[in-house]
Amino acid sequence: MNDFRARMDRLGGTVEPVSEEAIMADIARGEKAVRQRRTIRAVTGSAFGVAALVATVSLTGVMTNGGSGTPPASAISGGPASTASGLRLVDYTGRQPEGFTVDTVPEGFYVQGGLEDTLTIAPLTPRSPEPVVDPSGQPSGPSGRPAQDDPLVLEGKIGIYLEHKAVFGELTGPKLKVGGKEAVLIGDGAAMTQLVIVMSPEVYAVLQFDVPMSRAQMIEMGAGLHVHQSLIDKRAHVFDNLPKKD
């Protein structure tokens, strides 16, 4: 290696190996930050504004093509409905997301998309053909799309994600049964509420509601969420393949 390459190599320096404990701590810290970020976004969102919007839009539960902009497939309204604060649940008959099966969604909501083992259910918002405000001022989400279209933004929506028990911690609070599984409800429904369902000894499914739904509706929706075993297994083993110390 000539002198220039040697000098460049020295400038690049060495990358010190990281311990397994540090990696696990980083992952836990990152997932906690994601959870907190979702919480902050949900709490500061306008859940009641969403309710007013949904009440004026008489659509059934539909799904778009992962938020790609293609027209949503129509779904059939009907099925069991629960009455509460302006929203009712309808059978979801659109295309199912990968890794999940969703039985019910609030009327006027659709499966917006997600990443890996996450899912976002969002209200369909009517698009004005002539926006009265400069759309460039519209807040955008982390993927660059408008927040209302960004599945990474959970404000005013329902977020569903798998979490490893090591990251989320032990479940505390009154236990209930959701779809035959142990679960807890965190929050009083006035603001953001989380329904945490035990999917396996290591994995929870978290349904985070930033929409005005009753406790019964949240439980019904949780019972109608089915997570494919492959996703649960993958989340359960998320810490398995960390590099070992030399």
Binding site: M8, L11, G12, G13, T14, V15
Partner: peptide, 14 residues
Amino acid sequence: MLYTARLLAAGDAF
């Protein structure tokens, strides 16, 4: 990645 980034950043570690 960090090694390459250090070179692209002309030695600026931060």
